[in-house]
Amino acid sequence: MKVSDILRVKGGTLYTVQPQESLESAIATMSQFDIGSLAVIEHGDLVGMLTFREVIHTLAANGGSLGGRTVRSVMDDHPMTCTPQTELDQVRPMMLERHTRYMPVMDNKMLMGVISFYDVAKAVVDSQNFENKMLKAYIRDWPEEESTKNEPNFP
């Protein structure tokens, strides 16, 4: 399974913010849409990611205050990315290694979407459930072997 498969199921909605926007405004957007990340876009290019992790770190460092900060001052300006053709088996260890919950999907310089660790886990579970269903159907329809049909049944 590829990242493009997740994006196809997830849909095309992408939430973005500009780096000069206030952190307060970005948090309001995250809250309004019940999302954990925003792609930070400047002049059409991805320049960072803002996630609830950066927000929590900022609040903790400032005694619970946002302190009038901008998105640029707290965003992750080197987010790990993948491509639509990246295999899910490659994405999982990447996300685990860097404790990344949100990963931008890039096709050259174009942002195609953002996948979350939840999206990846759901895709894996859905794939395993489908495989289990197919295996159970196959076992249920298992053809009886010729040699056992004519043998006597001894207790």
Score class of each variant (00 low, 15 high):
Leu50Asp: 08
Lys133Ile: 00
Asn153Val: 11
Phe33Lys: 07
Asn150Pro: 00
Thr100Met: 14
His43Glu: 15
Thr70Phe: 03
Asp45Gly: 14
Thr86Trp: 04
Arg53Asp: 13
Val55Met: 05
Ile56His: 11
Arg98Cys: 14
Lys2Ala: 11
Met30Pro: 08
Gly68Glu: 10
Ser127Thr: 13
Phe130Lys: 12
Gly64Asn: 07
Asp107Val: 07
Ala121Cys: 04
Glu151Asn: 03
Gly113Ile: 01
His78Asn: 14
Gln85Cys: 11
Leu23Thr: 01
Gly68Ser: 07
Val9Arg: 12
Ser25Ile: 12
Met80Val: 14
Asp126Phe: 12
Gly36Trp: 04
Ala60Trp: 08
His57Pro: 07
Asn132Thr: 07
Ser116Leu: 02
Asp34Cys: 10
Leu88Phe: 09
Gly44Leu: 00
Ile41Val: 15
Asp76Trp: 04
Leu7Gln: 01
Leu46Arg: 10
Lys136Tyr: 00
Leu59His: 04
Glu42Asp: 15
Lys133Gly: 02
Asn62Arg: 13
Ile56Pro: 07
Pro84Tyr: 03
Arg140Val: 00
Met134Lys: 00
Met95Val: 03
Asp76Ser: 15
Gly12Ile: 13
Asp126Cys: 08
Ser25Gly: 07
Gly48Gln: 04
Glu144Thr: 05
Phe52Asn: 10
Ser147Arg: 08
Gly11Ala: 08
Thr16Tyr: 07
Met134Trp: 04
Pro93Gly: 12
Leu14Asp: 02
Arg72Asp: 06
His78Ser: 15
Ser65Lys: 08
Asn153Lys: 09
Ser73Pro: 02
Pro104Cys: 10
Arg8Phe: 13
Pro93His: 06
Ile41Gln: 03
